[in-house]
Design a protein around this nucleic acid. Sequence first.
DNA 1: ATATATAGTAAGCGTTCACTAACTATGATG
DNA 2: CATCATAGTTAGTGAACGCTTACTATATAT
Lengths: 204, 204
Amino acid sequence: MVKRRLTAQERYAQVVKVAMRLFSQKGFKGTTTRTIAQQAGISEAIIFKHFAKKEDLYSAIIDMQCNDRQGQSILMKRLENKKGREIFKEIASFLIQKHRDDPTFMKLLMFSALEGHKLSNIFMKTRGMETLDFLAKYINNLIKNGRFKKMEARLAARAFLGMVLYYSITQEVYGMKKFFRTPVKRVVDTFVDIFFEGMKRRRG
Amino acid sequence: MVKRRLTAQERYAQVVKVAMRLFSQKGFKGTTTRTIAQQAGISEAIIFKHFAKKEDLYSAIIDMQCNDRQGQSILMKRLENKKGREIFKEIASFLIQKHRDDPTFMKLLMFSALEGHKLSNIFMKTRGMETLDFLAKYINNLIKNGRFKKMEARLAARAFLGMVLYYSITQEVYGMKKFFRTPVKRVVDTFVDIFFEGMKRRRG
DNA sequence: ATATATAGTAAGCGTTCACTAACTATGATG
DNA sequence: CATCATAGTTAGTGAACGCTTACTATATAT
């Protein structure tokens, strides 16, 4: 088994991947370039051939994550044949499962926001807002056709995303999954039921 | 203006306070003992007279925060004359306002969870669970007297806290307050309305 | 086969980190 | 006023940090 020499692009991508994992586990300050090099199986100098400064690794991660529409398109496919309550169920279970299977990006985003890097800013302004607006738009439709009561749609969207994403944060980051092992389906059903019933327009 | 020499206890408390502020701004790894000393107006060596290791500052913060029942008792006083929907409104506005006025502890807790310190673990196991159980118990009462539908109370409590706390996180940590300036009252009314109506038992 | 571009390494640079030893200044007490 | 416990300082320590320099190994093109 001989290690093939990687091309610049391959190595670049690998280092970004390793850095992302480590930043999400230990934070930017908590991750050393030495460790990144070790985990990537190369010498430190190689990292600095590709990235002038350690900080530049963060920019590369931003590019990668902001351009990666894979997760979004998977979700959109899953939403195609759904409507009403099922839309919210699909979104909730998608998010909870995604973060349960791999909390890397969620943690990275939290670290980024706390450490004041641009990643969280850029991501929130683009992808975060997209998600919020998508939900708000959908909620607005339900308001217009009278199934939901009049309501500030974006605020309602934040309420829904709050239930779901704070659940993921407490489970995966705050370690609640050691104490609460409720099946995803029940969690989703409960959250969506509360939200959907709470949003319903009622006569009288 | 001559600086009085502080007693050991006074200095101890001051250093903990400064450390807490800095840890919440820059994280544990991102805060140097030099900076703590500077901000406290003393030399580094003094810190190590009180705390054998930098890590011990974290333990001191845990003690301080876990024993501080001030916020909780203020909230309990405010809840005394309230019932029904007003309880949830009071809790929501208390949490949102508290974190808006001073997000220090929220950020500290997030950093602690991400950096894997004991603070978040201990706090969640004690105070976090207390809050959750308080809410769950209250929700259970409303279920028993038939105003709320049958429901896993703890999960419902997490849904409500999720709306509220994720709102605070996005506002204060993810920088959403630059874009969303909705008055607290409207946010609280919206969230509580969704939750309370969503939880209501309905005939038929 | 040889030249050339480049992936990769070894070794160490100056700086900053957590932490310490050896000392000095202050203030309360007799 | 002298004593003495202790709050506080100065000036470092070795180790670890981000980053660089000067070099070697390997794949590819002619």
